[in-house]
Design a protein around this nucleic acid. Structure first.
Lengths: 369, 369
DNA sequence: CGCATGAGGTAATGCGCATTAACGGCGTCG
DNA sequence: CGACGCCGTTAATGCGCATTACCTCATGCG
């Protein structure tokens, strides 16, 4: 038994609209008022007739537009999106609150660029907060799955779980990670070019006459750290300086390990310039400054210092260190561009953005021996 | 001619999906994998079976959930909304960039609260960027209409066009404005209780012994300004002080109009305390401080100063002025709560949030005559 | 004069999900 | 032992819009 009389059957589906809420006009009403079909209304209002050479007479256009205007018609975005199979939403997933209470340590500078570029590309932003549990259906495990709601998604922070990302990538869901990242094969990312920027800093020091330069870094193998080290060593090599492992001081707790004595010993040994990597906490830089101070060394005079990044906000005043600035807003904007390209079917590439060299006031020629 | 053989007709409608990208899984795929119908999937995933006593066997539930999980299924928000459900998305629409380049003058503090409360209520945030143009059909005019994609929307900033808002309100779309607002009748809002807070400041000055207090305000009739003035006058009256129009100095350009001479004249005339309103730019407060300085008056000693709000960030250091702090994060959170209530069918009310009095260090007893 | 052509429009269909009447298989009650 | 109620599931339907195959004319052309 396949067919039944329509007459005999009650109609399932949507219940009649609750009387309370007055409905907005639909294209169907506009069509009725204009004396045309709904399809025509859609064509006229979407401008598809002009764009794709779909001919609609000026007279009909006018009738439709009049009707739409007099009814105060506005399209239902949900319906448009459904029919068009996209929603013009870009996800932004960060693994901490997107709006941390402490403004300064945050993704804020990225978001400045992200918002601007997203607007320029006609996207709205959906903020997914790591903590929010998601709908009942999704379940807690695949919280990351929520992002599939958008046309594509940006990821901020180094704590993105590789396997969940891998899954998204495998499904060809458009994803862009902010920050260089190797882990899931085929992941698109945008990152700062720490290698070049660090090399440039070392080169500048060498140009000032320094012959022994030491890198102080923390004990973390994030790409951001290894890239800086590589650039540092490259720079040494390019300047004809010894670039062996003794040029790098690595410590899990610089504040403890980087003592004034140690600094004095290095200086006695011929080191004239120190370079610290920048991290979230700025631990290496803080420790370096403190140790140099404690050793009673005058900064531009007796030793030169440089920071591979920007100083933490609480050290913002005082002389700017030689180093470089990460163009975070530009990175954010680039990430959006790349994501938009991915959504449009482009390849999943990695992009490096150049950092701006900052001469600063903490480096000068080495003291005469 | 009404009916034709189905066989002879080609099928209009959506073109087949472009082969390149694998589409997100739909409920239909989940259903197939679980060996049930799409309707069952919908019931299980939405939890409607449990909630409304619609019985689904535990076994079936498990199969469906497994399938959904292994496919990485997530519901399409547009479709959910279209089907008259909800998508757990809260819109945030601001009429300037949500992430201004200058962090300090921004909606940031609101968003801190908004994000937190939204997460707590299980909503994700959609940032609608004011500048983005919206769909071609809508034209620039109905850009605000995009927000209908979400279950409801928060509006930030005083530049929300009244007529567009009116339209949303008329359609009973859940909207909450951050900041008190009269204009569209029936608009829900949350605002700071400037009236009470301002009254309290004046009362405190009166308690210190001041008998002549002057309000310096700018030339803007936003509710935020008029409320402060009202509270100021209320406070005078409540303290038995003259509350005539001569107690208010209003200027479109305080920096120009508020001269040292003028201040000296007021003081000579018996004024012992000055109160400035807070605005975006802090113009009134800046001008007042400058004029008092220029007049060579000692602040807590010869004149007392108060600020109806928080000092601008660039004046943040230095002695805190007497005044009050607007609990912006709390306001944001309250706005979300109210919006959630609206979505659930609650009334469109206005809510005032209390400000915290700040004794500060710029007010003391008036000098002995 | 007969047919191709193009202009102007319409009918039908589907997007993905929520909703609900109906259905079939049970155990039970009268 | 047939009517009935309960359960679990499904089929059918619509939300509002975009898309496209097709239809109907009026014209142009050989």
């Amino acid at each position: 038994m396949v067919a039944k009389e329509a007459a005999g059957r009650a109609r399932p589906g949507r219940a009649p609209a609750p009387a309370g809420r007055r409905a907005r006009p639909r294209q169907a009403e506009v069509a009725r008022l204009a004396g045309v079909s709904q399809a025509t209304v859609s064509l006229v209002l979407s401008g598809r007739d002009l764009a794709t050479g779909r001919p609609i007479s000026a007279e009909t256009r006018a009738k439709v537009l009049d009707a739409a205007h007099s009814l105060g018609y506005v399209p239902d975005p949900a319906a448009s999106r459904l029919a068009a199979a996209r929603n013009n939403l870009l996800g932004v997933f960060s693994f901490t609150a997107t709006f941390p209470t402490d403004v300064r340590h945050s993704y804020y500078p990225f978001l400045v660029g992200v918002e601007q570029e997203a607007a320029a590309q006609g996207y709205d932003l959906v903020l997914f907060t790591g903590s929010s549990t998601g709908g009942a259906g999704a379940g807690g495990a695949g919280a990351l799955n929520r992002v599939r709601l958008a046309d594509g998604c940006l990821f901020l922070g180094r704590h993105a779980p590789a396997d969940e990302l891998r899954r998204l990538v495998a499904d060809d869901f458009p994803v862009v990670h902010v920050g260089r990242r190797d882990e899931p094969e085929g992941l698109a990312w945008v990152g700062a070019d720490y290698v070049s920027a660090s090399r440039e800093v070392v080169t500048a020091l060498a140009a000032l006459g320094h012959r022994r330069v030491l890198l102080v870094r923390e004990d973390d193998d994030a790409p951001a750290s290894t890239d800086r080290e590589r650039g540092f060593l490259d720079g040494l090599a390019a300047s004809g300086l010894p670039a062996g492992p003794e040029a790098v001081f690595r410590s899990g707790d610089p504040r403890r390990d980087l003592t004034a004595d140690r600094v004095r010993a290095w200086v006695a040994d011929g080191v004239t310039a120190f370079v610290a990597e920048e991290t979230d906490t700025g631990a290496a830089w803080r420790a370096l400054r403190a140790a140099v101070d404690a050793a009673g060394l005058d900064c531009p005079g007796q030793v030169s210092l440089a920071l591979l990044g920007s100083p933490p906000a609480d050290l913002a005043d005082g002389p700017a260190p030689m180093g470089f600035d990460i163009p975070r807003p530009a990175l954010g904007a680039e990430a959006v561009r790349l994501l938009a390209a991915r959504i449009a079917g482009g390849p999943a590439e990695g992009t490096l953005v150049a950092c701006a060299f900052r001469p600063g006031a903490t480096a000068g020629p080495p003291p005469a021996p």
